[in-house]
Design a protein around this nucleic acid. Structure first.
Length: 153
RNA sequence: CCAGGGGGCCGGGCAGCCGCGUGACCUAGUCGCGAGGAAAGUCCGGGCUCCACGAAACAAGGGUGGCGGGUAACGCCCGCCGUGGGUAACCACAGGGAAAGUGCCACAGAGAGCAUACCGCCGAUGGCCCGCAAGGGAUCAGGCAAGGGUGAAAGGGUGCGGUAAGAGCGCACCGGGGUUCUGGUAACAGCGCCCGCAUGGCAAACCCCACCCGGAGCAAGGCCGAAUAGGGGCGGCGCGCGAAAGCAGGGGUGUUUCUCCCCAGUCGCCCGGGUUGGCUGCUUGAGUCUUGAAGCAAUUCAAGACCUAGACGAAUGGCUGCCGCCGCGCGGCAGGUCGUGAAAGCGAUACCGCACGCGGGACAGAACCCGGCUUACAGGCCCCCUGGCACU
RNA sequence: GCUGCUGUAGCUCAGUGGUAGAGCGCACCCUUGGUAAGGGUGAGGCCGGGAGUUCAAUCCUCCCCAGCAGCA
């Protein structure tokens, strides 16, 4: 009796979680937005591809579909500049991810200085190149975590 | 025309394709709407919500500070007054109280707060010396605060009289204080009279006086709420160790003793709190526009019309065309002007028009909502006023 | 959304209404055969910016600009 009970409950939970995330799928076909800080931090350990206008991070996410996130720090500029950069990156991702995106991966774009003035077509080509490179598993050197290491390594 | 002062406004327009947020519906498709004057800084004031509280008063702490008005309220706005600046238009002002008290005023200087005498002036009066005397001389006593000098500031200022020299000592004008009257709601102003008038400055030093303020903030607050663990109540079954005698643990009680009662596990039902999350608060409001009325104005009243962003890792983006604005280039085109030439023409052109090419287009992004203040801002438009020059 | 703190020499910090200092660092000199240590001398500041109060502001008041921190 207890087994039956557990099964029923598990399926109920499943259904519920599906319903809960349905609105995310409706935002854009097969795309969803990363909202949690821990996901952003986890992506830091994934594949890293740097381009003049941005840095692309990719990391498998255990079957949660194609997801994207955008990070623009205060260093880049004021609110107008930051929001404009996010809007242009979103436009890039909507155009590129449905075809060229990696399935079941998180895609994080980090804005760099100069990314706002950069030509949109150039950014688009660079994103395609970065995605192609990430699909092969290659990337630039991973960023070292900022621990203070022993002096005499 | 030149120079200046004050106020108000705009902050690109139209269109197409692909997208985004939201609302509506004959809901797999179309239509409507979609950032600002500062949305900013968070410096004030409110609405709204919760918490606290018997109304309230007092204390503490903080704020405001000429008078009158406006307002939901304000530290905001309007009008007026005073002081200072400017030829003027106009601008600036935390603009109550310094004989309620305490404190500070460095350096310099003789003296800096019931002040002082360094240089200096006088030496009329008393004394001294010379002289018969008239008188003269030095400066002891003493008098003075004009001049020099110090300072941010030296106990009213200028002039005349006066005097030994001086001094509000006296007078005139200016300044100051008090007061009657007049005008004004008032701040205050004016005229007259009186007082020769020692009694700084700082309260954005403590302070005194008058007035104002309970605290927190939409992540406020409300509703819903799966699984797991845990809490409370009720009911059923059961009761630690030991073979037994017997021996314990916790609670009902602050302590001691005795007695009595309850509890431990499990099942069922119910209740409350509540994490990730969802919904709400959330945009109809001290609202916007037009017209009329009251008022010098801020503003208020009346009538009519209108609905104008609601996101939440956070919606306005990407691409393009035409028009408009500014700057630069090119005498390329038309005109004007200048030079040359008999002319045609050729060359030059500060300025104006046209065409073409290139570039530029600020400050800045709603996050519960309003009223202000402050700060940032390419470029442009409009109105009023002042002074000067020229002309009629 | 609300609140607090800091800004002074190249660096870390004092300071108070009246000409701005300390330590480390820097330059030069002394000492030593030479170096370190030690001693001496010196340079280096529009006290984050702008207004105001005051005779006088790094200090008091107001407004900006940076940076840092905290609460929910």
């Amino acid at each position: 009796m207890s087994e039956d009970f557990a099964l029923a409950e598990a399926s109920a939970e499943n259904k519920d979680s599906k319903a809960r995330f349905a609105y995310l799928a409706s935002m854009h076909p097969s795309l969803s937005v990363i909202r949690k800080r821990s996901d952003f931090l986890a992506a830091n350990r994934g594949v890293r591809n740097a381009k003049p206008g941005f840095v692309l991070l990719t990391r498998p996410n255990e079957g949660k579909g194609k997801r994207y996130g955008i990070t623009v720090t205060k260093k880049i500029g004021n609110a107008v500049v930051r929001n404009r950069m996010k809007r242009r990156f979103r436009e890039l991702l909507w155009a590129a991810l449905p075809e060229a995106g990696l399935p079941d991966h998180d895609h994080i774009l980090i804005g760099r200085e100069g990314g706002v003035e950069r030509d949109f077509a150039a950014l688009s080509e660079e994103l395609d190149a970065a995605l192609a490179r990430a699909a092969t598993g290659e990337g630039d050197r991973a960023r070292r975590p900022r621990h203070k290491r022993s002096r005499r390594a």
